[in-house]
Computed example of a mutant assay.
Amino acid sequence: MDVATMLGAPGDALRLPQQQWETGATEVLRQSFRYHFDRNDFFRAQCDADGVVPDDVRSRADLQRIPLLPVSMFKRPDAHVLMTASLADVEAEIRSTGTGGVPSVARRDTTTATRALNGIFASYREFFALSKGAGLFLSPSTAETPEMGMVKVFNILNGVFDDHVYLVKDYAFDPDEAMAYLKRWDGEMTRHIIGPPFLVNRLLRFLELEEIELKLDPESMVITLGGWKRYTGESISRDEFDGKLNRYLGVSPDRIRDMYGMIESNMLAIECEHHRKHVPPWCYVSIRDVSDPGKELPAGQTGGIAILDALNTSYPGFLMSEDVGEVDESPCACGRNGQTVSFRRRRQGAELGCCAVSIEKFIDSQEIVAECAVPAAAAGH
């Protein structure tokens, strides 16, 4: 199965027998490896140093030989050296800023942008089966944050809804406004909530403090992306999160779906109803020894998450992330095969960074400023 076929029918590709999945993933990644090997001098030098050529990749076991780009390189001012495509062919720049304030910049040429858009939308249809309803986006719009990767990924989803609204404006979020929209759509459209976990959690805290229980619809979904750790270091408990969504909004756990990805890759791993995040068929997740990134660990062991992505023609999509987790290749009860990935934490010494982190940090800073402001009348006394 080639990349175009995978993009057109990701559900079919994910339901192939495991051996066929291995063969298909290996072939599309070998082709991608050859593409960048032939066109990218920087990457070719890495391959020469490691003594590897595309013909060396014959089986899944050989994928670990493909050189990896550390995602930290995308923060460098000379990150353009990573490019296979010409800068003149770049259609979009996606950015993510974490607690350190230095943005990662990932550039997409037209081919990569087209493939990524097709792949993400097809994956949404496969896992969510949404084609109508109302979307309450607890995030800024792309008009406000046009280069933010998380927002762009959410924005692809809004095309399936009959109505939608973005509720983070000028980096401020008002839960009363969220409630007004949910009540306005009641009885008219199935209501769905989309946003990073910390903002959905803010809405839940509001409902808890106000002792409000507003039941959504039987088919309502809550879709999250952006990590479960706040910039303060505090973690959001998934079990507690799901429990409160069920209590205060009536959303059952199988309708709560989290996603995992990073702006440097086109991989978006989406949860099925059994809360396993399925790696798309055009990607392969390789778990590496944290102390020796050249060593691949068996499925089930915890280590550094490396992502090999066959969609990217902008730069080699073979990335060593700063995340730690594991893959599972056991059959999933949903009927899909391949890999599922679990994110555990950031690697020690790595900056906590994603779009959601920077949004949360800014919202908190604005709220603190507002709370500390001295009213004009009081200032006159």
Rank of each mutant, 00 (worst) to 15 (best):
G294M: 01
C354G: 15
R184L: 12
T5P: 05
L311D: 04
T110Q: 13
A4K: 15
M262C: 14
W282L: 00
A370Y: 13
L29N: 09
G100W: 12
W185Y: 13
R346A: 02
N337A: 12
L167Y: 12
A129R: 13
M320C: 02
M267Q: 07
L297S: 03
T114S: 05
A350Q: 03
V160W: 11
P77F: 10
Q301V: 03
R288S: 07
V52Q: 00
W228F: 11
L138W: 00
M1E: 08
A92Y: 09
S237K: 04
H274C: 08
K152H: 06
L138T: 05
T145Y: 10
Y231C: 15
T112W: 11
R276F: 02
Q18E: 15
A4T: 10
A180V: 14
F42K: 03
F43L: 03
G349L: 08
E208V: 01
D163M: 11
G159L: 11
M262F: 14
I368E: 15
E211F: 01
F173R: 02
K361F: 06
C272R: 13
Q366C: 04
K183F: 05
P140Q: 04
F343P: 11
C47R: 11
E326P: 00
D62Y: 01
E371L: 09
G51F: 09
K152G: 15
E147F: 14
A13D: 04
D62H: 11
I363H: 06
A4N: 14
S59C: 12
V160H: 13
L216Y: 13
A299Q: 00
L167A: 07
R346M: 07
I236G: 07
A106T: 10
L209N: 11
V200A: 09
